[in-house]
Design a protein around this nucleic acid. Structure first.
Length: 413
DNA sequence: AATCCACAGGAAGCCCGGGAAC
DNA sequence: GTTCCCGGGCTTCCTGTGGATT
């Protein structure tokens, strides 16, 4: 008798009706508590269907407040209506966290406009940026119609690469002969326009939409609606939705987080062969999510970054909190000596620490200690249920040796 | 009020690897 | 080949700074 390792999963009954519906990047049929925002955005984009140029927009709000989902939803409807009305309307969404330089954004948009018969992709490097820009203009004109360019996580790009891109994109209409374009910027940071050139600021901020974070009750509605589409009827135990919503509400009302919690909880219940998702599954899901977020980030860190992180953790293991940059640098130098590497400069390490801060692995607050200088107070934010040594060990063997030897060498002092 | 610590963080420039164009 | 451009990692040099101490 053949037995296959997958057989047991086939016979196991699933709690999901359609798991996709519980993913945060899924486009649901409706978005509860966002009717006003949808109304504002769609009213503006309605211009595109009339062949006019819609105003540029900026959407603000914390992560998981539904900015991306709403935009995606509206753009989807816009394109569908454009097709139905035989109007040329194109919406292009770019995530500026992944595509985070001017060159890459322009070439990405340009390449998404490739006609089927065309082969000439814009190369990922090599061209001068203005040539990429001109090529983009050419392609847009050839296609014609109105283009809605959505730049998600735009604050990230501006911080990193400046506002040249926004300057170029918002003044695009003067270069375009046939086509028309408008820009929608999506930002997690309310004050990101402070970094902008005033001209760009006024052009981009023609229309602002503020997304308030969801409160716990609104999150419950969202979860119920998604659960209705994604899970089988009656598999949710008492208090589960409420708990997911409450936990996510603590995380500044992050709907993305709430959905992940619910989905992973259901997965946990299913793996356990249970017919009902209970609150305990939510707790398990929550702790798994914490480590799932952090583990891959650490293991893919470049070597030097790992060393810096190791230096911070070594301090922490010795019971030192609120460590200063200089202290971290000292330990880092020792670690380099230990592994016979050339240490980088303190200036660079300072930058790497800020980097770790942005990744959420540590917190680095700049504080002034008066006479005793101005520095960063650095603390790790790696949850207790994660063993950093293990993650480092999973990464590269060389690095593991570095880490565990410095780690133990230090702690034994 | 002046001083001064221990850095922060900007600016400029170098070097490298990748690629295009001539 | 040579010469151009982009972007990332890094260094060097630099000016700026909050607030305890003098």
């Amino acid at each position: 008798m053949d037995s296959n390792i997958f057989d047991k999963f086939i016979s196991q009954q699933t709690l999901f009706a359609n798991k996709e519906n519980l993913r945060h990047n899924h486009r649901p049929t409706q978005l509860p508590h966002r009717t006003d925002e949808i109304e504002k955005i769609s009213y503006n984009l309605w211009e595109a269907l009339k062949g006019h140029i819609p105003s540029n927009m900026t959407l603000y709000g914390v992560t998981g407040a539904g900015k991306t989902a709403v935009t995606d939803y509206v753009c989807h409807h816009l394109k569908a209506k454009g097709k139905a009305m035989d109007r040329k309307v194109e919406a292009i969404m770019v995530n500026c966290r992944q595509i985070d330089t001017q060159y890459r954004v322009l070439s990405h948009i340009g390449n998404s406009l490739l006609e089927e018969f065309e082969q000439d992709e814009i190369p990922f490097t090599g061209w001068p940026t203005d040539r990429v820009f001109n090529e983009l203009i050419r392609r847009m004109d050839r296609r014609g119609g109105v283009f809605v360019i959505v730049l998600d996580e735009i604050d990230h790009l501006v911080r990193k690469a400046g506002d040249d891109l926004l300057y170029n994109l918002t003044s695009m209409n003067s270069s375009l002969k046939v086509a028309r374009a408008c820009v929608i910027g999506i930002s997690n940071d309310l004050k990101f326009t402070d970094f902008l050139d005033p001209r760009v600021r006024s052009r981009l901020g023609q229309l602002d939409v503020l997304f308030k974070p969801y409160d716990a009750e609104q999150l419950q509605d969202i979860l119920r609606q998604r659960a209705h589409e994604g899970l089988r009827a009656g598999v949710i135990g008492p208090g589960v939705i409420e708990l997911c919503a409450a936990l996510a509400a603590q995380e500044h009302g992050d709907a993305r987080c709430a959905l992940d919690l619910l989905r992973i909880s259901a997965e946990k219940a299913e793996q356990g062969g249970e017919k009902l998702v209970n609150q305990n599954h939510v707790r398990i899901a929550q702790s798994q999510m914490e480590s799932d977020q952090i583990t891959p980030v650490i293991s893919t860190l470049p070597n030097q970054q790992k060393l810096v992180l190791a230096a911070i953790l070594i301090n922490e293991k010795n019971g030192l909190r609120n460590v200063q940059t200089g202290q971290v640098y000292d330990i880092y130098r020792q670690a380099c000596k230990h592994t016979r590497q050339n240490p980088l400069t303190q200036r660079r390490i300072s930058g790497l620490i800020s980097n770790l801060d942005m990744l959420g692995l540590v917190t680095a607050r700049t504080v002034s200690k008066g006479r005793y200088g101005r520095s960063k107070e650095i603390n790790s934010c790696i949850p207790a249920n994660i063993n950093p040594e293990e993650i480092m060990a999973n990464a590269e063997e060389e690095m593991a040796v570095v880490f565990s030897s410095t780690y133990h060498h230090q702690t034994s002092l």
